[in-house]
Design a protein around this nucleic acid. Structure first.
Lengths: 207, 207
DNA sequence: GTCTATATCCAGATAGAC
DNA sequence: GTCTATCTGGATATAGAC
């Protein structure tokens, strides 16, 4: 059962995902990855030259999963309100499946382990299309006047922050009751959409 | 100039704040703290028994600075809208002065180095008063019906997230231009308040 | 109180047998 | 391709002189 070639590499990667994302680069131990994968430390160095290289692969994959692949929605041709609803819904689903990734990404980016510019260029991340759409909706009198960048960052904040702050929110607001927290998260999808739409929708007789 | 007693302890603490908050516990090196403080590694162990103990002091101080000390505003007797405005304004000021602390706190909490329940109890953190106020405003027909917990978490998200995500936001939205980013942050205070108020304020003839 | 020197441990990485 | 054994560096921590 031992010699398996290709499979080992994937098991190491899988273990590395878990250990890196849970503990961050500095907190991760090659030994723990090896144990988790059921292989020897040396084998990790055989497939990936170093801890750094293994990390890069894990990080890039995680980054793509939660950043550009979801941002794509913002470049679709849907009308604004519908697009926001789709985006929030899809994004919260994605993050619920990978609740630790946002904190992982943000922590590593904050410590300069990653070259953000290269990531942005490499993944073609660009908010300009969506920004222009918001400007058009303002000009057309469909939504209130606002700074599109602020609006987009508001949307991202409302979606991502609860995951980054999960432990403290659980403690402060739900006394660590998993079921209360789960209910909160279920409600959140529609709640966030309502919250956003309500604050940009134009009412009667406003400028 | 060397023998200074009390002063050294404070200089070590100051250096430790910088190094821990920038790099996290796992990424911090005692040597770097010593260099930064202009003292010898051994002296750190003289004042603080271990890295862990030094860290605890830094963490608790940082935690108090950005969590309970600002949450106090939420327990004042101000009317709701005024309170939200005060809170956002004060909180963004506090975070602008300590932009790295949110990421630091959240990262360490996420990795269980801290016992959140003890922190919450120790600092008397409790959102119940504010939650009740929101319920009263709803009952009085002053704001739309909503889940107060969701609302509070929305407010926190809008304030804190931009700091946690600072590097990537700078890269994606401002092409790393510091002045554009600074302008954004200046605008943000009033923008966030508007955003929140607009989404909870009651309009004519709504349920 | 502050330093030098050192002990101790542990992590990442490599050599080499199978 | 996978393992055992080992090297090497670096990190926390301590002993002990001044």
């Amino acid at each position: 059962m031992k010699p398996q070639g290709k499979a080992s590499r994937e098991e190491i990667l899988e273990a590395a995902r878990k250990v890196f994302i849970e503990n961050g680069y500095d907190g991760a131990r090659m030994q723990e990855i090896a144990d988790e994968a059921g292989v020897n430390k040396a084998l990790i160095h055989y497939y990936f030259r170093s801890k750094e290289e293994l990390f890069q692969e894990v990080f890039l994959e995680a980054f793509i999963k939660v950043v550009p692949s979801v941002m794509v929605i913002l470049n679709s041709d849907e009308p604004l309100f519908k697009k926001i609803e789709q985006f929030v819904s899809k994004y919260l689903d994605t993050l619920n499946e990978n609740p630790l990734i946002p904190g992982f990404i943000l922590h590593e980016l904050a410590h300069g382990r990653q070259h953000i510019d290269a990531l942005i260029r490499g993944t073609g991340l660009n908010p300009q299309f969506f920004i222009n759409q918001i400007y058009r909706e303002i000009d057309a009198g469909k939504i209130k006047n606002c700074d599109p960048t602020q609006l987009i960052i508001n949307i991202l904040s409302l979606c991502i922050f609860p995951f980054v702050a999960q432990p403290i929110l659980k403690g402060v607001f739900f006394r660590n009751r998993e079921d209360d927290y789960a209910r909160f998260m279920l409600e959140r999808k529609s709640d966030v959409v309502r919250f956003i739409i309500a604050s940009i929708r134009k009412q009667q007789e406003e400028s």
